[in-house]
Each structure stands twice: as structure tokens, then as C-alpha cells.
Amino acid sequence: MTYVVTEACIKCKYMDCVEVCPVDCFYEGENMLVIHPDECIDCGVCEPECPAEAIKPDSELGLEQWLTRNAEYAKKWPNIATKGIPPRDAATWDGVPSKFPEHFSEQPGSSHNESKPRAA
């Protein structure tokens, strides 16, 4: 069990989740975050915290693709331990459906946070 960040985060990237996560398991892409499934302890604190309602438990049906993407990009992107500045137009992307095909960026994020050493 883990929580996963889903499509609703794309271009919203509020990052409130980062502040409450006790285990710093978020990783930062250019326009969204993901959760490292091997580091998340399933405490659930981040879920209600997300203004975009982008964070879901992986027990919800239909999230397999997002679980795979979270696992993949958590290995490619830098860890984020401190909230950065959300995009200026975050609110205009909040609730926009089907953002992944056109708007997802594979590029790593750059809030210049201290990254933690990766788990062995």
C-alpha cells in the first residue's frame, strides 16, 4: 500500500503535501510531484492536504498506471523536502481533466531543495 499522485497535480503542483509528509517521500518533476512507493508509509496525511485532490490511495481502482508512473519518476526526479513556489497559474489548471497527454513534463523539477540520500 502506498499513496500515489495522480493527473490532477499536473501544472497545479501546490506542494502542500511536502510540508506534512513525515517521511519526505515526494519527488519533484517540472510540473508535478510523485510519491516514491517504497518510501511512503501509508500514513495518509497528505491526502486531505492536497488542494487539487490529486493524491489517492493505491487501493483505489484504476490507478495502476499512476502507481507505475510514481515509481518510475520517483527514481528519476530529485527529492523535495520543502515546499517551493507553486506555478502562478496553478488555480487555472485546478480541475482541468485529462492533463497527462498534453501537459505532463518528464523533466525534473528545480525548487532547489536539499535532497536526502536515497534509501539503499
Partner: peptide, 21 residues
């Protein structure tokens, strides 16, 4: 830890997964 989990205080920052492994 439990304050962070129950009351979202953000006081705990650690890696319990690694500690348990």
C-alpha cells in the same frame, strides 16, 4: 511522529522505512 500523523504538525521528519529495513 504521531503528532505529524494525527494532527499534521509536520514535526517529525525521518525515514522509518530505512530504520526498519
Amino acid at each position: 511522529f504521531w503528532s505529524s500523523v494525527m494532527l499534521m504538525s509536520g514535526r517529525y521528519k525521518g525515514n522509518p522505512m530505512v530504520a526498519h529495513l
